[in-house]
Nucleic acid binder design. Structure first.
Ligand SMILES: [Zn+2]
Ligand SMILES: [Zn+2]
Length: 262
DNA sequence: GGTTCCGGTTCG
DNA sequence: CGAACCGGAACC
């Protein structure tokens, strides 16, 4: 079985492929063996807002959402902003961690061949079909909570929600065009419908669990659990367990890890 | 100053 | 409609 696990991270101070040193106290994907360094321009997948060696802000998801709980239920707020364009609309940055963002360009597709460096004319100006960011493709910015929006989810949320109408459907509409994504953290999207089973007294689905895990790990963990003496902390989303149970324990599991060095 | 490539516009 | 095109900001 391929090495997917945690062992060996402790003494690694730089990526064994791209040789970039890991800064201390930073969030990194799979610190031991950067799978993305195959693409020189994207040697690591950085996580959340942080700083790199040059103290420069790392390119990060622009639509991560903060969460707060109250008697009203949960409130999601998007704090970050995207890049404004001349037309007043915003141009989203790629998320940096989806399958597309982790892929190298193929050099063979329509858009690759359009690039001048492959001899093309540069008229199409799109990224490689394999590199297309999954969190941009298929979603509009309006699918997410916006800056300063406060979107509440609660059992009797119909009257309560101000900026986004929340209707918790009982049956899951698989490809509804009215999906609203309340929250996004690294690798997780939260849909309104994800809460249906919660408020029906049934179960927490994986999306909620993973969103909460990432949120705790990135936002609450540093303050509340600094008394723990470990240096390295690892977060394994439920996806990892699912893959293990399916016998799919391969190197791709590394991509789901969040690793934190205190 | 070159590359990337989103997002809007125009075309067929 | 989708495909082609293009402006232009970000990043190097
Ligand atoms: Zn390609
Ligand atoms: Zn992405």
């Amino acid at each position: 079985m391929a090495q997917w696990g945690v062992s060996g991270h402790e003494n690694v101070s730089s990526c064994d492929r791209c040789k970039l040193p890991f800064p201390a106290n930073k969030f990194l994907y799979h610190t031991n063996g950067c799978q993305n360094s195959l693409s020189p321009s994207n040697p690591h997948v950085p996580l959340t807002t942080s700083t790199n060696n040059d103290n420069k802000e790392i390119d990060t998801c622009t639509q991560d959402t903060s969460i707060s709980a109250s008697n009203d239920g949960l409130a999601f707020t998007c704090e970050s902003e995207n890049i404004a364009t001349s037309g007043g609309t915003r141009k989203r940055k790629r998320c940096g961690c989806c399958q597309g963002c982790r892929s190298a360009e193929c050099g063979k597709c329509k858009y690759c061949l359009d690039k001048p460096k492959y001899g093309g004319s540069g008229k199409l100006r799109q990224c490689c079909i394999h590199k297309k960011c999954q969190e941009i493709k298929g979603f509009k910015e309006s699918d997410f909570a916006k800056k300063k929006d406060k979107t509440h989810v609660s059992p009797n949320t119909k009257e309560r929600s101000k900026s986004l109408p929340i209707l918790i459907e009982e049956e899951k509409s698989e490809q509804s065009s009215t999906r609203k994504y309340l929250a996004k953290a690294k690798g997780t999207l939260l849909d309104v419908a994800d809460f249906a089973t919660v408020y029906n007294g049934e179960w927490l689905n994986d999306q909620i669990i993973n969103y909460a895990l990432v949120y705790i790990f990135l936002e609450e963990f540093p303050e509340k659990l600094t008394s723990l003496e470990s240096t390295f902390f690892y977060l394994l989303p439920t996806t990892v367990f699912t893959k293990l149970m399916l016998g799919q324990a391969d190197d791709s599991l590394n991509c789901y890890f969040l690793v934190r060095k205190m």
